[in-house]
Design a binder for these strands. Structure first.
Lengths: 239, 239
DNA sequence: ATCAAAGTGGTACTCAGTCCCACTTTGATA
DNA sequence: TATCAAAGTGGGACTGAGTACCACTTTGAT
């Protein structure tokens, strides 16, 4: 718990260096012959480790080039949390993606190749979505508290959710207009996190916009500004 | 060539009956022991066919309970196409989901069990998303033409095509504010389908809303109206 | 020097998915 | 009716991902 940022503890550093190196090798192989035509055996051989050890470092074959996305999650959550609480969540989400857009802005070829690799294999695409689902899980509670108003405490992590969430009561069938118009879910007591689709709808839609923008950016070989594309995508939804 | 729609041709009917029966058996097995704990061998055995034949009928293990989703795609596309061309795409998309909501409205237990099965296995979840990607591919072009058509017609903020992008030049890096503000792709000539993220952003976001609504509906054991949940989710994005 | 924890490689296993081959069934035609 | 090609079926062998277990080595602290 204490070595999170202070002491990477040599072992950890070695481990990370290994991960990075294997990841680089795998990236090269995937680019050369396609992800589906590359076996774990091959990657392990080129990296000088056994198949067994490979799976100790990476859960799946695709993880070898996708784990960094997972690590990105907390950074995005922090970026969202850093936005002013009064800002509309949609705008905050837009700015949450700024780090992603900026990252590798100097090495567009790199991210272009990455996107092409993702798009090249259905399996890879699926795993990529899974990673984004991890982001979603991190962001949804933040958006939820933002929506429910500044009434509750601004604790980012602890999300008890269970003041009274009994399975017995069921919100008959009401949930009418009053809720759908206002920004904050005025009946915050009833459906803060589990029973309001809005937070997840916002986050997942924002990610959908991000993906749509990225796909166009990739199909244009990076000729258009990613910021402009993302703005375009997100403004259509909520101008 | 002749039996496309008129004559299911006995063989086809037999084949379909087989599919349905195997699908029913697999659904039961998945519910009883979980998808991941059920092997293709088992399903095939219970259905009285060989493993080989099973894979002739279904591409993957999960397809056995998911193919009907793929078949649903054209129906959704038709539902969207049936909406008035002047309607805002977001509203049309909302109504596109009406068939899904209505379907099995009389058998909520069935769809509840289905959703639980989906949510129960990560693999299943991934495959489910893939099926929805098929819907996306069908809907995106429809929304694209709707958007580009509306650009000329009635939408208010039609800009005078600032950079005057021709199809030949690569849109250097500009595409600035002008594009990001306006709803319609005013430069419809330049980026109608391939280079405008808006259609895909709309469709993918709508699907994200649908999923968010369904997830809440499932976690509430169907206690809340699906229509209300979906309205809530989609209205937050574009009231 | 000792010792426990962590890391590594090897083997064997399960299961999804593919390929190929031999056999049977079907349906149409001579 | 006999024939024949197309389609369907099952079996067996194969690849490749991912898991489990076991024996061995390295590390780092006491």
């Amino acid at each position: 718990m204490k070595d999170t940022a202070a002491k990477p503890s040599l072992r950890e550093r070695t481990r990370q260096a290994m991960r990075d190196e294997v990841s680089a090798i795998a990236t090269r192989l995937f680019a050369e012959q396609g992800c589906d035509n590359t076996t774990v055996e091959q990657i392990a051989a080129e990296a000088g480790l056994s198949r067994t050890t490979f799976f100790r470092y990476f859960g799946t074959k695709e993880d070898v080039v996708l784990t960094w996305l997972e690590d990105l999650g907390p950074m995005l959550a922090a970026a969202f949390a850093a936005r002013p609480a009064t800002e509309h969540p949609w705008v905050s989400l837009r700015h949450t993606f700024d780090p992603i857009i900026t990252m590798n802005a100097e090495t567009p070829e790199r991210s272009l190749a990455f996107l092409r690799m993702i798009e090249g294999s259905p399996t890879m695409k699926a795993r990529h979505r899974e990673k984004q689902r991890c982001w979603e899980e991190l962001l949804v509670p933040l958006v939820a508290t933002r929506l429910s108003g500044a009434a509750a405490a601004d604790l980012p992590t602890a999300l008890p959710t269970g003041p009274s969430a009994g399975p017995s009561d069921g919100l008959p069938a009401g949930l009418p207009e009053g809720l759908s118009t206002g920004l904050p879910a005025s009946l915050s007591a009833g459906l803060s996190a589990d029973r309001d689709p809005a937070p997840r709808a916002l986050v997942a839609s924002a990610l959908a916009c991000l993906n749509a923008a990225m796909q166009v950016w990739e199909s244009c070989d990076g000729a258009v500004s990613r910021n402009a594309l993302l703005d375009r995508a997100m403004n259509v939804l909520h101008p």
